[in-house]
Simulated assay, not measured.
Amino acid sequence: MLTKAGWILSAPASVEDVRLEWEDGSPPGDRFGEAKARARRLLPWRTGAERYPAYSSALVQLAGRSQLYDGDLYRPTAIAGEANGIRLRFTHGRYFEHLDTTEILAYEAASRDLAGRTPADGRYRRWLKDPFDLTRRSTGLGTVTLTIRTAAGSAGFYMHKRDADQLAVGAGVVHAVPAGEFTPSDIGLEAIRADFDLWRTVMREYAEEFLDLEEAYGRGGRPLDYDHDWPFGSLNEARESGGLRLYVLGVGLDVLTWKPELLLVCLIDGAVFDRIFADMVTAGKEGTIIAGPRGNGIPFEFSNISRYVDSENTRGAAKACLTLAWRHRAALGIVSDVDS
């Protein structure tokens, strides 16, 4: 991943050490409009004289991704490492804006590769110039959580083979689980304010990817009750009692798309895991969870971690989470029989 000084923490920190700031309106120097216009020049022709208006439109109309929804998201505009944490500044964004000006970098690279040209030397990427300048384009923040089930003398982690037919981003690869977008759960202003909270996003991703509950696309409906609705109440109780511990490891940009991704690790006591995820669905709407022996996770051993880190089919953010979790295993209190 691409990182700057202070982005990768020297030790795991509580997720509360990620400081979230909000700014209304566009950030100073915002060039999103120009970025979208320049990105459009990469798209195929819809008619003899007109290109598709945006990458999101082409995905829906040409690639048949009709399930895509232009929901609200929290758009990061600045990232900085601090003494013991990370500071993130956000404004309001939309998912299609992210597709149209950030995810399109993958399309540009793939098009050049198919044409026998250098993938990472496209004119749009050259115009963006600085991957760390988040005012030049619109993007979302990915939350990537490596889940580790802990028990007496052992630990196991989970991976996710993402469905190539259902997903527009990261399709067909192996990723940490759960992984999602930092978004509100609902279109209401109350939800947009109340869900500006990383833990709430991680909880919703657990509900979707481990329990296959219907995803909150932000289209309206009954607001979530995080204190009482299943499984949020139980996840909150587990965290408050210490049976579930969520740490931040750092933040980095995906090398291909330059999307910021927050790297997290969540340790869950075995009894707590088995209670909350008793009905875990290994084959869900977004892909298949690789659950390891007896569903207790892939043994957290150097050889297993290396196997996924060395695989070309593993997402970069997942590799980073695995590498950092292994590096900090003592600080995390993870017991492993194999060291290196």
Rank of each mutant, 00 (worst) to 15 (best):
R123E: 15
D229K: 06
W230Y: 13
T143S: 11
G287K: 03
T282W: 03
V248M: 00
A216M: 11
H175N: 12
A320Y: 00
W45Q: 14
S306G: 14
V173I: 12
D269I: 00
G180T: 08
E208D: 13
K319Q: 09
I192F: 14
A11H: 11
P178V: 11
E209D: 10
G93Q: 09
A325H: 05
R275E: 11
A191M: 12
T102A: 06
I289N: 09
A152E: 15
S26C: 01
T150S: 10
V248D: 02
W22F: 08
D195S: 08
Y217E: 09
S10T: 15
L105F: 02
F196Q: 11
L267H: 04
R123T: 14
G153I: 08
D121Q: 13
W230P: 06
A106L: 09
Y247R: 07
N304G: 05
F182R: 13
L189W: 05
R94Q: 04
R87M: 05
P184H: 12
Y52Q: 12
F273H: 13
Q67I: 12
Y124T: 07
N84D: 08
E208N: 02
I104H: 06
G333E: 15
L99N: 01
P53N: 07
G156C: 14
T91V: 05
H160M: 10
T102D: 02
A194G: 10
E240R: 12
A176T: 11
A238Y: 00
K4Y: 03
D229I: 07
T102K: 00
G33D: 15
V335Q: 13
G297D: 09
P231D: 05
T147A: 12
G25R: 08
P119H: 06
E16W: 00
T143A: 06
E190S: 14
V338T: 14
A318T: 11
L324Y: 00
M1A: 14
K259P: 01
F132C: 05
Q67L: 06
H228A: 14
D100T: 00
R204H: 10
L322G: 00
Q61L: 15
F273P: 07
T139P: 01
N84T: 10
A13D: 00
R117G: 11
